[in-house]
Deep mutational scan, measured.
Amino acid sequence: MASQGTKRSYEQMETDGERQNATEIRASVGKMIDGIGRFYIQMCTELKLSDYEGRLIQNSLTIERMVLSAFDERRNKYLEEHPSAGKDPKKTGGPIYKRVDRKWMRELVLYDKEEIRRIWRQANNGDDATAGLTHMMIWHSNLNDTTYQRTRALVRTGMDPRMCSLMQGSTLPRRSGAAGAAVKGVGTMVMELIRMIKRGINDRNFWRGENGRKTRSAYERMCNILKGKFQTAAQRAMMDQVRESRNPGNAEIEDLIFLARSALILRGSVAHKSCLPACVYGPAVASGYDFEKEGYSLVGIDPFKLLQNSQVYSLIRPNENPAHKSQLVWMACNSAAFEDLRVLSFIRGTKVSPRGKLSTRGVQIASNENMDAMESSTLELRSRYWAIRTRSGGNTNQQRASAGQISVQPAFSVQRNLPFDKPTIMAAFTGNTEGRTSDMRAEIIRMMEGAKPEEMSFQGRGVFELSDERAANPIVPSFDMSNEGSYFFGDNAEEYDN
Rank of each mutant, 00 (worst) to 15 (best):
A2M: 09
S3C: 03
G5M: 02
G5W: 12
K7A: 00
E14R: 15
E14M: 02
E18M: 03
E24P: 01
E24T: 13
R26A: 10
I33P: 02
I33M: 14
D34K: 04
I36F: 14
R38D: 07
Y40M: 06
Y40P: 03
E46D: 11
L49A: 13
D51S: 10
G54Y: 03
N59K: 12
I63T: 06
V67R: 01
S69D: 02
E73I: 14
N76R: 03
E81Y: 13
S84K: 01
S84I: 13
G86P: 11
D88L: 01
Y97K: 14
K98Y: 01
D101S: 11
R102Q: 02
W104S: 04
E107H: 14
A123M: 06
D127P: 02
T130V: 15
H135Y: 09
H135V: 07
H135K: 11
M136P: 02
T147D: 05
Y148R: 01
Y148T: 08
Q149A: 03
R150E: 09
L154N: 02
P161R: 09
M167T: 09
P173Y: 06
G177A: 05
K184Y: 03
G187M: 05
T188P: 07
R195Y: 06
M196N: 06
R204H: 09
R204N: 03
F206N: 08
R208A: 03
G209C: 07
N211T: 13
G212V: 03
G212H: 11
T215V: 14
A218V: 10
M222T: 13
K229W: 09
Q235F: 06
R236V: 10
V242K: 02
R246M: 03
G249V: 08
D255Q: 08
L259G: 13
S262E: 08
L266G: 01
S269V: 09
H272A: 06
H272C: 02
H272Q: 14
C275F: 09
P277M: 12
A278F: 08
A278K: 05
F291K: 13
G295N: 08
Y296D: 11
L298T: 03
P303W: 04
L306K: 02
S310I: 10
Q311E: 01
N319G: 13
E320I: 05
N321E: 02
K325H: 09
V329N: 02
R342P: 04
V343H: 00
K351N: 10
V352E: 08
P354R: 15
S359R: 15
R361P: 03
E369A: 06
M374C: 15
E375Y: 05
R391N: 04
G393H: 03
N395T: 10
R400D: 02
S402T: 14
A403K: 14
Q405Y: 03
F412T: 00
R416W: 12
N417K: 13
A427T: 14
T430H: 07
N432I: 07
G435C: 05
G435M: 04
S438M: 07
A442P: 00
I445W: 04
M447N: 09
K452N: 13
E454K: 12
E469N: 08
A471V: 03
A472I: 00
G490K: 05
D491L: 03
N492Y: 04
A493I: 04
E495Y: 08
E495S: 14
E495Q: 08
Y496N: 09
D497R: 00
